[in-house]
Design a protein around this nucleic acid. Structure first.
Lengths: 196, 196
DNA sequence: ACCTGAACACCGTTCAAGT
DNA sequence: ACCTGAACACCGTTCAAGT
């Protein structure tokens, strides 16, 4: 099952996830897994689905607030789900969104609905969602990648010839996320007032 | 060499890249590769570096224009480099940016310089860059992932229960990118006027 | 110093054979 | 129908031995 596989990734990283190890963790023989999933990629797709299933559970009850607050709440919830699971961004990023199942589509539907209420036309309401999602996924990929990339002094050493770069700013992932989300929300507001 | 490895990925996809196949493509025995790269991950890092090295070459000569035009030109160049190489987004996304070498850091330096000229303080000039880069990486990941995910009718079938979702909009990756980049630029402009 | 042959310790996937 | 033993065709990585 996908939850057992995610637990294996949590304890050993994505490269430690093996069909053989998953089989023993489930107390079953290796070929029996191929009755549950057609391939390892199908397993990974279902793991991505499981990770994103946590978004609606984690989302705060901000249904009374405006669309910016609701979108920000969903964005924070998506980020939290990706970051809570070890290698979560890599798992979700490696599984094409439109191939996934009910939970992901429900999340997308909720996002689009929020943008429709914000005032975007049906023709364009999907795009704010993919923009925000791509931003979150990219930032989370970088953040989880940095965990396996040596410490801050390594990075500082590499940036020594580049006067405009600062390792401290680079590694302040919370600030990066807050900045980017604020910019995206401001940009979406501008987009709405320009073409009402 | 990384360019040979990228050519292998171009013709067979990332999963077809094997140390053994790379060795024969280079006309060398398998263990000799480990004198050039310490591991396959180091090879992948250098491949990511090589992909991003194309950005400055591809960038149009817009140095006379304003910062929005320059940032947009670099964003388009990054996207083109990721999309031109098969599985380019997965390769770049799998290699932590701060671990990479001269080319990537030069690109980052150019981006930060552009944002400094736009008016961002040295404290914050890095964050617009990471925001834009994360957006481009996430969108490119989805776009290249969609190539291996069945055709449009498959996706349409899955979205049938979700009235707000449209496969046509989902798969219009150029429109998604243009929308997101425009929103980001508008948001950055707003950020500058709010805190001068 | 640099390269090779050969092996080690694994992989994902399949399938005839069992129950 | 469902599961297993055993194998197939590979992997990345290492290392003593060659030149």
């Amino acid at each position: 099952m996908a939850r057992t596989a995610l637990a294996l990734v949590d304890s050993g990283g994505l490269e430690s996830l093996t069909m053989r190890r998953l089989a023993t963790a489930l107390g079953v023989q290796l070929p029996a897994l191929y009755r549950l999933f057609g391939s390892k990629q199908e397993l990974l797709d279902e793991m991505a689905e499981t990770i994103l299933a946590g978004v609606s559970a984690r989302k705060r009850p901000t249904d009374g607030a405006g669309w910016t607050e609701r979108l920000a709440a969903i964005a924070h919830a998506i980020r939290a789900c990706l970051l809570t699971q070890r290698d979560g961004a890599r798992i979700v990023g490696g599984s094409f969104a439109a191939k996934r199942h009910a939970h992901t589509l429900t999340l997308a539907d909720t996002l689009v609905e929020t943008m429709l209420e914000a005032g975007f036309s049906a023709e364009r309401a999907l795009w704010p969602c993919t923009t925000v999602f791509s931003f979150i996924l990219g930032e989370s990929l970088e953040q989880q990648g940095s965990a396996h990339a040596g410490d801050e002094s390594d990075i500082a050493a590499r940036t020594v010839d580049h006067p405009h770069l600062s390792a401290a700013h680079f590694l302040d992932f919370d600030a990066r996320f807050d900045f980017g989300l604020r910019v995206l929300l401001a940009g979406l507001r501008a987009e709405l007032t320009e073409e009402p």
